[in-house]
């Protein structure tokens, strides 16, 4: 028929059912990644934890001299009948620093990696065995356990110096996915806990106000610096409900950052702001996340290296 545009063929609509969704998830988990990505994450995460351990040497000193009666073991520390002697605490400190340095540079990683991950698990269990769980240490412990049993030194590592650069492979991609899943799950659990324990009262301004006031008062009374924005926020109750909602959105929305790249970038920025906010109002700062290290598994970190090398060239 001249003069008429051919009718557009309409394909039957393709419904995405559970089977297609499962296949999509399986493909996402099996996406190959460069060995360099996993190697750079090894360097960043192991390096951060090693520096953190060194910077918190005073904690080893404190626990080496804390009275035994205060020992309340959790995690791996339940294997102990009594606290470690001060000598063993310091031996453990030296071992962890050594393993951390070797893991960071990727030397004999097949042995060092698992040892460092398990060593940090032992330390964080012991560190939390004195009446207070130190949740800020949980995520990097999980990350090191995943990294420790992954081929994370096949690139950007001492172990990899004399071997040809490996091609992209799912054996590098899958551990990166697991690291990212661990990151977003910890945020999601935190948001879920707020809904479970507080419910809609979380959006009541008094809820967040009391949390901020409690943290600021604790610091002031125990002897420390005042959070810079605590009073400003407490004096302005109209700020509190939006802040509470925004914080909850960051936490519960974290898993969506795995699904869409653009949302991922927004979420990463929001998460950093969230941590800066808790630092400024409550002097609560989960450094591993707030400094971005714990968020790196969501990013193609090897591109930063490529960009740097391109700029230098």
């Amino acid at each position: 028929m001249s003069g008429q545009r051919p009718s557009k063929q309409v394909e039957p609509s393709k419904q995405v059912g559970p089977s297609e969704w499962i296949d999509g998830m399986a493909q996402w988990l099996s996406t190959p990644a460069p060995a360099e990505r996993l190697g750079l994450l090894r360097i960043a995460i192991s390096g951060f934890v090693t520096i953190y351990l060194a910077a918190t040497a005073a904690e080893f000193s404190r626990l080496a001299t804390t009275p035994k009666a205060a020992f309340d073991p959790v995690g791996l520390a339940r294997l102990l009948n009594e606290p470690l002697s001060s000598e063993l605490v310091w031996v453990g400190f030296a071992l962890l620093l050594g393993l951390g340095a070797l893991a960071t540079v990727g030397w004999r990683y097949r042995i060092v990696g698992p040892l460092f991950g398990l060593g940090v698990l032992a330390w964080t269990s012991y560190h939390s065995s004195w009446g207070q769980l130190l949740h800020f240490e949980h995520l990097f412990t999980l990350h090191l356990l995943v990294l420790g049993f992954a081929p994370a030194a096949d690139a950007v590592a001492v172990d990899a110096r004399r071997t040809p650069a490996p091609t992209d492979n799912v054996r590098y991609g899958w551990p990166v996915r697991l690291l990212a899943i661990a990151t977003v799950t910890t945020y999601f659990l935190s948001g879920l806990a707020k809904l479970r324990h507080t419910g809609v009262a979380w959006f009541d301004p008094d809820t967040l106000r009391n949390h901020i006031a409690y943290s600021a008062s604790r610091i002031d009374l125990v002897g420390g610096p005042t959070p810079p924005l605590a009073r400003i926020v407490v004096d302005r109750s109209w700020l509190l409900a939006p802040m509470a909602a925004a914080g909850l959105a960051v936490e519960l929305g974290a898993p969506l950052a795995l699904a869409w790249r653009r949302f991922r970038n927004w979420w990463l920025g929001s998460a950093i702001l969230f941590h800066l906010g808790t630092a400024a109002t409550m002097l609560v700062f989960f450094g591993y996340r707030g400094l971005g290290v714990g968020l790196l598994p969501l990013l193609p970190v090897e591109r930063a290296k490529v960009a740097w090398e391109t700029r230098r060239a």
Binding site: G75, L76, L121, T124, H135, L145, A193, K194, R196, T198
Partner: peptide, 10 residues
Amino acid sequence: VPLSSYPMYA
């Protein structure tokens, strides 16, 4: 440790 429901401030 290291599994938690992260109940702090909840």
